[in-house]
């Protein structure tokens, strides 16, 4: 058995050795610095634009995005630690990361509010948040634990229709983008998403406002993840997001300024 084991393990170690040395020998002046930015699904369109603009301003940095539910991304970063920057749709997900492995330069960079969306023909005739409690409304929300899902339930609770509306839920989606997709496909009657989703979905959805009294303001924090091997590039990206150019792009995509 021993020769067999040695035969198996040695090449494995050799492979590990090669990958370690190659990852630690990055960033000589000639090559491009890879920057991994993990960002909330709701930031997909805005950050893709910001990433392109940032690359124009910093040609030596190549930004790669991983978009998903903030809760999901936070636990991925905790276990795998491959992110340089984390931009979250909730303070809670950022708190998770702040406890381990830690973050630096944490700052709020945008706000978002909730809105109801329906297919353009509004088959269930939704005119206000109260209509979400009506019978036979096919409502889609993000799952509990996903920031926009938790915010939506908070708003429904404030409106006093949490029980009736959650009884109408036909699907709990894994992230914000999946919720929007169920409405643009025309299968759901209504969903609660961010106002930024309406700004970037154009005429494929119709929006119904949620009154400020029951609406929720989501504040988005961004930070450099402790353990990042490219902290200079990470800080530069974070600065770009909070500076006027980044803020203008975020505004174009329907985000509000941070407090």
């Amino acid at each position: 058995m021993i020769p067999i084991r040695r035969g198996v393990i040695l090449p494995f170690i050799a492979v590990l050795g090669v990958s370690c040395s190659s990852s630690s020998s990055t960033s000589p002046a000639t090559t491009s610095t890879p920057l991994f930015v993990f960002a909330a699904s709701s930031l997909t369109k805005a950050f893709t634009q910001i990433g392109q603009d940032f690359h124009t301003a910093h040609p030596n940095v190549t930004v790669t995005f991983d978009f998903g539910s903030s809760t999901d991304l936070a636990s991925q970063i905790q276990s795998e630690g491959t992110a340089d920057v984390f931009a979250s749709a909730s303070g809670t997900a950022m708190d998770t990361l702040q406890s381990a492995p830690g973050v630096t330069d944490r700052t709020s960079f945008a706000t978002n509010r909730l809105v109801i969306i329906t297919p353009p023909d509004n088959p269930a005739g939704i005119a206000s948040i109260d209509d979400l409690a009506g019978s036979d409304v096919k409502l889609v929300l993000a799952a509990e634990g996903v920031p926009v899902g938790d915010y939506a339930r908070q708003a429904l609770k404030s409106a006093g229709i949490l029980a009736q509306a959650t009884a109408n839920v036909v699907s709990n989606e894994d992230d914000d983008a999946s919720v929007v997709a169920k409405v643009t496909a025309g299968d759901a009657d209504a969903a609660i998403v961010y106002t930024s989703d309406v700004a970037s979905s154009g005429s494929s959805v119709r929006s119904v406002a949620i009154p400020s009294a029951v609406n929720v303001v989501a504040t988005y924090p961004i930070a450099v993840v402790t353990g990042s091997t490219h902290t200079d590039a990470a800080t530069a990206f974070l600065d770009y997001v909070v500076e006027p150019a980044g803020q203008a792009t975020l505004k174009d995509f329907g985000f509000g300024p941070a407090g």
Binding site: A143, V169, S171, E173
Partner: peptide, 20 residues
């Protein structure tokens, strides 16, 4: 879609449970 008791099979339940 993903709704407990209607469309949420084991793989979907596992995927969603990771969140919470």
């Amino acid at each position: 879609g993903n709704l407990a008791g209607r469309t949420q099979t084991m793989p979907l339940a596992i995927y969603q449970a990771r969140q919470v």
